[in-house]
């Protein structure tokens, strides 16, 4: 019985993968509708991924739009249709890097106060949630940022893509243009640091 359920799950996921490959091929052939379906499917994932890294709703929306526009125009460059998700995340990773580079550069010329925290609270205030949830989210952000600051850039990228964006190892490898073994090595190191971080673990346990 259990095996049958598992088999059904496998069949369902492979059918979805096949459907996605077909859509990617159609989009590559110039079918706008097929691309819109793909964009609708991944819009939330890409928006979330960018939002974690920018902490600004407006920037996240703009960058997400840019990512899909770039993907639409450059779809012909995608050689392996199976890797569409990873490829899309690679575009997003590069857009976020460009964004931070631009921001760093503009900060050299004007002194802008660090308004990330306010932006975060503002964003949350617009949604329908109580003050306790807002507080928990704020603390999660503080704790996760503290933990992530102890990781190297690569460890951080891999950890966030794996556990926050919930990508598979092969998708992370495509997104970061690294081999799977490199991704695994950095993920292992990041996990070792996670295991040692008692404060973050206690927070996650709700203590």
């Amino acid at each position: 019985m259990h095996k049958t359920k598992k088999e059904k799950e496998i069949n369902s996921s492979s059918a979805k993968a096949l459907q996605e490959v077909t859509r990617v091929k159609m989009a590559k052939a110039g079918n706008k509708e097929a691309f819109e379906q793909l964009a609708g499917h991944y819009y939330g994932d890409i928006f979330r991924m960018i939002y974690y890294r920018t902490q600004s709703r407006m920037d996240a929306e703009d960058l997400t739009q840019e990512v899909f526009l770039k993907a639409y125009k450059g779809l012909g460059r995608l050689t392996d249709e199976d890797h569409f998700k990873g490829w899309l995340f690679r575009i997003a990773v590069n857009r976020v890097r460009d964004f931070h580079r631009r921001k760093k550069f503009s900060h050299l010329f004007k002194s802008i106060p660090n308004d990330n925290e306010d932006a975060y609270v503002d964003t949350q205030a617009s949604t329908e949630e109580g003050p306790l949830e807002t507080l928990i989210r704020k603390r999660f952000r503080q704790e996760s940022e503290m933990f992530l600051s102890r990781l190297s850039r690569m460890e951080k990228d891999v950890f966030v893509l794996r556990f926050m964006d919930q990508l598979q190892i092969n998708e992370i490898a495509t997104a970061l243009k690294k081999s799977e073994s490199t991704v695994k090595t950095h993920l292992y190191r990041a996990l070792s640091k996670f295991k040692k971080d008692r404060a973050f673990q206690d927070f996650l346990k709700g203590e």
């Binding site: 706008k32 691309f35 819109e36 964009a39 609708g40 819009y43 939330g44 928006f47 979330r48 939002y51 974690y52 709703r57 929306e61 997400t64 739009q65 899909f68 526009l69 639409y72 964003t123 949350q124 617009s126 949604t127 949830e133 928990i136 989210r137 999660f140 952000r141 996760s144 556990f163 926050m164 919930q166 996670f194 673990q201 996650l204 346990k205």
Partner: peptide, 22 residues
């Protein structure tokens, strides 16, 4: 705990309203 990281991260993102304009 790692799943909790994912869930909390997901919950900390505002809901998506817009769609890409092509």
């Amino acid at each position: 705990m790692l799943l909790q990281v994912g869930n909390m991260a997901k919950a900390s993102v505002p809901s998506v309203v817009s769609r890409p304009v092509l």
